[in-house]
Structures are given as C-alpha cells and as structure tokens.
Nucleic acid binder design. Sequence first.
RNA 1: GAUCUCGUAGCUCAGCUGGUAGAGCAAUACACUUUUAAUGUAUGGGUCCUGGGUUCGAGUCCCAGCGGGAUCACCA
Length: 569
Amino acid sequence: MIQNLSPEEIVRRESLDKLRQKGIDPFPAAEFIVTSNAAAILGNYEEGKEVIIVGRLLNIRDMGKASFAHIQDSTGKIQVYINIDSICPGEDKSFYKEVVKHLLHFGDFVGITGKLFTTRMGEISVHADALVLLAKSVKPLPVVKTDKDGQIHDAFTDPELRYRMRYVDLVVNEKVRETFVTRTKIVNAMREFFNAKGYLEVDTPVLQPIPGGATARPFTTHHNALDVPMYLRIANELYLKRLIVGGFDGVYEFSRNFRNEGMDRTHNPEFTVMEIYVAYKDYLWMMDFTEEMLRHVCTKALGTTSVNFGEKTIDFGKPFERVSMTEAILRYTGFDITGKNETELSAFCKSIGIEVNESMGKGKLIDEIFGAKCEGNFIQPTFITDYPVEMSPLCKRHRSNPELTERFELMINGKEVANAYSELNDPIDQRARFEEQLKLQQRGDDEAMFIDQDFLRALEYGMPPTSGMGIGVDRLVMFLTNNEAIQEVLFFPQMRPEKFETGPDTGDFIAIGIPEIWAEHVIRAGYDTLEKLKSAKPTAIHQTLNGYRKKNKLEIPAVQLEDVQMWVS
RNA sequence: GAUCUCGUAGCUCAGCUGGUAGAGCAAUACACUUUUAAUGUAUGGGUCCUGGGUUCGAGUCCCAGCGGGAUCACCA
C-alpha cells in the first residue's frame, strides 16, 4: 500500500536513515533518567543548577553557532539554549552542525542535560551540555506561536481535526490539556468527598438485559453464548438501589452511560453520570449534601467557588436558591399549575406557543412549560423541586401532595446538571408506576421504561428510605472549565468514522510485469489503476514515466518503450 | 432528521462580475554564539473535498455525494 507523503514528511523520514548512518538510533529503547521538569525549574530557579529534562522540541530558533528551542513536557515549557561549543566541547563540531541543525525537527522528543541560567531577555533557560534524541517525529505538528502579548498565532482550531486528532490538540493547545487535568481533579474531588463520608464506590453492569433507570433509547447488542439481546446501560440507578436493598448505607458509581439519540454540542452517545444513593436520607438532605459537595469540588479543583462561564459568573459559594416547579412556572408565566387537569394544561401550552400532541400526559406538558419558559432563567445554581408524579416514575410521592414527587433538579446556567429523589421504595406503587409508563408507551412515547421484574422483586424484600442523586459529570466539567461543548471535555468525542484514503496496491502492477522498483512510481505518476494504464498510449506512458524519473531524480533504470508495450499488451 | 454554512499548501487563511493558483508561518539551503511570533537572502511545495453539468475556459456558477460547523427538533 502506498502512503502519500508531503515533502516535509519525506524530509523527516530521510533524516531517520541519516541519523542511523551516524550511529544515532531515532527510536532508542533505553530508559532515560530525568531529574527535573519545566514547572519545577520555573517554580524553583537556582542559577547554575544541573538538570536533566525531557520533552518535545518546539519552535527551534537557529542562530548559527547556537540555537534556542523550547522543550515541552507534561508540566509546561522551558527554553533550552544549545551552544555549539557546549554541546561539542572537542574539535569535532559535527554533532551540532549536522544533527542539531539538520536532523532534529520540531516535535521530536529529546533529553537535555544542562545548567540553569537566565538569558539577556530574562527568560529562565537550560544551557545544554548534552542532547539525546529519544524519539523522532516524522509528521510535522501544526505550528502554533504565542507572541509576547500572549496573542496566539495560527491557532490549531478546526474542531474536526482537534477532536479526531486529540493527541495533536493536546500537544499544541495548552488550554485543552488544562481542561482535562481539571476534569480529573473534579472527579477526584467528588470521590474524595464521598469516601470521606464512608460511602462505597461500586461497579455495576454496563451490559444489561433490560436497560432501566431512565427513559432513553438504548444501544442494542447480542450475547452469542446465551443467544439473548443485550443493551448498553442508559443508567445504573436500578442496580445501585439493589445494593441499598442488600444493606449498604451509601453507594456511588461513576457510570458511563450510552444513549442512542441525537448528537450535538451537549450530547455525546456515551457520557458519564455520577450516581449516589444514601440510605435513611431524603431529598431535602440530598440538597444540602449536593450543595456542600459542589462547594468542595470547586474549592479543590479550581481553588475558588466563583466560576466564570462565558460572560457570566456562577457563584457556588452562596446558598443555592430553592424553587418549586409550581413557583418557577408561576414566576415566569404567571400561570398556576396547581390542580390543573390535562386539558387545561394543554390549552395553556397552546396559548404560549408550545406544540402539543396526543402522547403528552400531564407531566410532559408541565415539563414542556418549564423547559420553554423557566429553565433558561436559572443561571446561578438553583434547585427546582417537587416535580409532577407523571414525569418521575422512580420517585417517592411528595409527603404533603400526592400529585407531586420528592424530587429536585439542580439547574446551572439554565441547564439541568443534577437530578435527585427521595427514592420510591413502595414496591406496589413502583409496579403501578411502571405500568403507567407502559400506557404512555402505547400512546406513542417511544422511550417509556421497560419493566424490570427483578428490580421490583428486590424492592419487595424492602429498601430503606433512600435518597439518590445523579450528576452529569461532563456537563459539570463544562461549566467548571468554561467550555460550551461536551466535545471539549471528552478526550475522544464520538464522530463519524474517518475514511482513510488507501492508495492502490503495487501488487497488481507488479503482476503485469512492472519491475518492483517502478511500481510505486507508476502509480505516483498518475497511473493509479490498471485501467488507466492500459487505456493510455504506450508512448505517452513511456514519456511520462521517464519525465517523472528525471523530475524526482530517481536513481533507477529508465523505462524502455518495449517494456511499456509488454505491460499493457 | 430539517435548514443554513464551510471544505484552497503541513498549519492559519486570501482568491472580486468565470480567464494559466496566492500570503504568513512551517520545510529546504546559506548567514548569524543569550534569541524569543528571532532576523536576512534564496528555493521547493497544490487531486482547490469527490463526481457530474454549464462554458471556448470552472477554485469561482449549477446538481449530486462525502465530511465538518452552526441553528432547530429529541435527549442528559
């Protein structure tokens, strides 16, 4: 198979051989011992200190008998000064003149031994005494430069390329690396918070025979040995509750969920939700707990509870406002949903321009009103409480109003981030609610819940009063890292599979008698299929190929017209 | 799924009413021993996303496809 290489790639590949001829392995195997890194040097500068550092060589500035470059390691960038007399102390200056100046490239991994100093321009740098090539880069990275005002030039910004080649994005865009480091800090802070309270981190099945715990379309697959359909989980709620039945006081899981639905800047087919269930608690407790947890996460991961998101500042430090669904709708529409029936709600929806259809029950209608008129207004963290019973089939009825449930959602910047219940633990009610869902399904709701008989059986054995909460980790990370797209907080967001141009195979060409050394060049010269070759005049092919040979200075025998005639006959 | 929009050198992007493809950076070569978006001189580099169509002539206009982005719908 032929790989199409750009001129720069060819230069870099050729440098591999030149290095080997000099006895330098471009991909050495041995461990390289490191004593420092960019952040340590910059954070604790000691003039003249000897260091050994590693990283990618960036932005090489050749000044004749000396060169400057930056080395990028996982902690940041540090300047390196490579002086011909320091790096080649003896008579033989060929290492600097040939290797450093011509065979090293932007993006190569190198190890540097040297002493710390400060340049005339005032930049802390490493004065190199030795340089070891650790790995060649044969494909040039995008060149992104930052000037003295911090302005970024020629930024690598194309989202398609950035998401498909995250490895390049991470090398070249410092902000991207920071986002992912912060993501991990956020997750660690949550874990630390839960562990400190004595709750148990658990793993439950990703591959499930019944996709329960949420209303969503699952991905389906098939288990061969059992010969049954299987689903990738859409939620882990029902499994965690089984564990509460089993006697744990508190369990949580960072759950990778999969939903076979639309994709856009806030939805990826797989995403992460942290769910936690704590026995003997209710949703009021869970609100306090969630608030405290988020404050802990902000402080630990960001060092502040005041977070910038776009033009807005979100304050996690102040107590979160708590507004019931009814109050929220009253506040933003002037309409009181209390005691209204389906017909009245439907009429109100139409009056404010919300499309309604037959499949919508009371819960759905209320949800539509909230989504259209209220949701976007809650910029600061706000708990919306007491949702209608129809839209919460796994949630306990409200202690003071059976039409409502003990549920809250946490809204941040007008988006739902967390969802929590006083969990329904009455198995009789739970069965009835599942049956309600089935009816909705029959009315046309294509994502009503499946009935999980085993889960009902578990509840029949008795589940203590429990509060559960789920928080969208990706969304939370988006808010805390000031990113507007979920793709920015997932290392490898889902994209349509990339098509790679696979060049024609030289085998077919060799088979008709073309010499092996010529086959590749015949293709590169434009005859990339046998049909093209055979439909061309032999004299034209002959001239084209020898012209190509001359242009590319190929040191292979010229093609004879008789050969060409033989190939195409 | 619908609508709009984009696809030109390794990267970032120009390219007007259709007339033989451009810049900066990167690369290659030379000069320069504390530069920093280093500088100066020279050189090379293109399937203008793909396939059709209109035209004497298409990067440019039309149609279809592929891929991306934005908005909307659904969902978290």
